[in-house]
Amino acid sequence: MALTIKQQLSSPGGILKFLIKYNTIFIFIVLVIFSALISDVFFTSANLTNLLKQVSGIGIISIGMLIVILTGGIDLSVGSLVALLAVIFALLVNTVILPVAILLTIIIGFSIGSVSGYLVAFQKMAPFIATLALMTIARGLGFIYSKGSPITFKSPGGEFMADFANNSTIGIPNIAIVFLIIVVLAMVMLRYNVFGRLIIALGSNEEASRLSGIKVNKYKFLVYAISGALAATAAIIVASRTNLGSPNMGMAWELDAIAAVVIGGASLNGGKGTAINTLIGVLILGLIGNILNLLNVPSYPQQVVKGGIIIFAVLLQKFESK
């Protein structure tokens, strides 16, 4: 119903309802205030820059994860893809000129994603299984191509990328800018383009989509391919930040990406979710890590807290749907 914010707030129980409706933003704001209160380093530009840099890689694959989840699928391969493609990018950057290295890496990412897409869309394989298989294959290939150890950038192109990845423009880290551009693109495509309309329709009722004449298989295929291309973009960024490509990168990132999308209110059944909420989901996850680091909480308790927040966020969404 088209009620204004004011009306919503003034109706009985309105404030609570409002908070539940916008729970993701609400949790985010609470976390920011909380962080600012308990740590005086939090609001320093060094810390915020660092936070943005840290979330950009996972953020980019989360957007890919979102569009896959919107169709009712899942992509478990993205974490391993980041490792494999970081290795490939490091190898390429040392052999061919930079633009070619970037382009090739993204094309390879798109192609590997297409394999998942093909298996899911045309071979009717369960997305969980198809991408699980791709996940172990990609991780294995990463180790094979790198011979088990990190590959450092050793070319002017590599140096340029390292510079780019570690610097900022008008105060915002360059890689965060890349991430935000991708978020905006996704937002526009999901909201104002037929592509978004169709994958959301597909995720909310596949049979009705097919009978509406939607090319169901094409779109199912495409979302995995795009997710692969985004994993490649993330790989280039994380490799450039550390000046190397390692087969150990992106460990369990697929899980963080799923968590971010779900915290952002998307439904694993498909058909529900937005790019902006996924962005907030990514920031919430990043914030939790950041603040716990500032408080010197060791990494194991951190994992426990993270899990707790995920449960809390999803429980709040249950309220919303009532």
Binding site: N193, V194, R197, I200, S204, S212, G271, K272
Partner: peptide, 27 residues
């Protein structure tokens, strides 16, 4: 027939994109 979780607008438009979109698919 219908997409239950989606709005009336999104339901009806699903067959008519040809007439409500630019060439690049923008609505």
């Amino acid at each position: 027939g219908v997409f239950l979780p989606l709005s009336i607008r999104r339901n009806i438009s699903v067959t008519s994109f040809k007439s409500i979109c630019t060439n690049l698919g923008f609505l």
